[in-house]
Nucleic acid binder design. Sequence first.
DNA 1: AATGACTGCCC
DNA 2: ATTCTGC
DNA 3: GCAGAATGGGCAGTCATT
Length: 565
Amino acid sequence: MDYSEFVDVYESLASTTKKLEKATILALFLKKLEKKGKAEWVYLLKGKVVPDYDAREIGISRQLAIKAISKGFGVSENEIVTRLRKIGDLGEIAEEFADKRKQGVLFSGKLKTDKVFDNLRKIMEIEGKGAVDRKLGLVSELLGQATGKEAKYIVRTLLSDLRVGIADGIIRDGIAEAFFEFGEESEKKKEIIFKVEEAYDLTGDFAEVVEAAAEGKSALGKLKVHPGRPINVLLPVKVTEIEEAFRIVGKPAAIEHKYDGFRMIISKESNGEVKLFTRRLEEVTKQFPDVVSVVSKYVKGDSFLLDSEAVGFDSETKKYMPFQAISQRIKRKYDIEELAKKLPIELNIFDVLYLDGKNLMPLEFEKRRKIVEKIVSNRKLKIRVAMQIVTDSEKKAREFYEEALKMGEEGVMFKNLKASYRQGRRVGYIVKMKPEVKDLDLVIIGAEYGTGKRGGWLTSYYVACLNDGKYLGVGKVSSGLKEIESEEGTTYAEMTKILKPLIEETKGQYVKVKPSIVVSVTYQDVQKSPSYESGFALRFPRITAYRPEKPVKEITTLAEIKKES
DNA sequence: AATGACTGCCC
DNA sequence: ATTCTGC
DNA sequence: GCAGAATGGGCAGTCATT
């Protein structure tokens, strides 16, 4: 198949914002892929070449893509960076340069999807000395044979950023529409979409789902969890009020502490092998030998899948440590045992999805919880069933919340007692609630140009506090302003207009600006920072207001920030 | 051998 | 992680 | 209410450069 066929699909997906239209476009194309025996190419529709659970990576992102474009089209990196400031899309830049190329240079013969897919897969295998050059070689080979539009999507695929407005949900709908008939019947449609979703949840692999769906309903229904392969996890929605939390999950609800650790999916196969995965399905078994042995010892069951939060603590003081500390262990390949001793893990198990050959996900949460309590033996600072209350009282909920905060937890999670486990979806079965923090007033000292739909605007702002008449950086903030003009709030376009006359220096995507624009910034925590002059940075910063009336000399001081850390 | 640029992935 | 936006 | 896109700090690993 010509790669241009993929490009046509990408372009038509991008040309509409309507989800139903996108699903129909996908449906037609998926049928074609399946007929050709190329179900695997469904990954390309997500801007990838392997399924999510596959740990291999391409290892090319913005900087190396700039080099690849430069090499592929013989233009200077500087020229590319300049264009990037204006249009914010390396894919489109590659397209421009490909189109400008003299006609005779174009490879005679069409670029095949096989070639694109294979080269990208090959890139994932390259490592060692000279790896970067060899990777770039494979990319520029592709770009050399590509038309403008093809180059655009090759580059976007490299960046895993297709930006055509599809992700798992719409691919799921596309598969349903491609291989099943449901006409105008919305109930039937819902049922089939649910079946496809279930199949994807269990396998984590759209190629497998496409093949099964093509065979029919019964093949789809036969797909199962692959032992030792992780599955997508249920995600929470966010609220700020207890009343709202209850409204979403119903009464009574289960309420649990929200720990400042990281999500860990635990799998045990019937051969006794324990494997650990993160929320994004990366395997971390090697990184946490301590967890493997705790799970083997203190969880009953021949085979299972558990959902948990791993929290780090200091082995000497026994005090819980913030996420920043535990994150040292997640990607570690060396000195694993030392770190395991210094920064051990306490596992908080809060759900079970699979046990001894049985899929428990359709079961009600309160029943799954009972099973967790049955199979997990609590061991102090090693493993425990997540602390929980069940209540319909707002007063009790508030007390539990306050208590969690007092203990240094991030907040609480509200859970619908009757809900099944819907993987990978942010549906209203789980709600998280965290406290709001007082805003800081900070001055903008620099900015960066945005990409994609924010292309051409200055959309990230370096902000600083005041110390002895000097401005010290405390981080970068981007969320919070509006993309579209409306009654309320400042837009990125307006902020860009305000900042442009203040630019003192431009370097790549970065501009230095005269410190005079003040914004209010909220955040979750102040943390120690190795990368900002103030020595501190904000965790989860976002802008709450542009403060034109605020004098620069009255912004938040370093001393005030220190107090919050 | 040390440092820095870059990437990917936790939150 | 948070936020904004379109369906 | 949900999904998709664009963005934050900071960590370890890899590779290139000094």
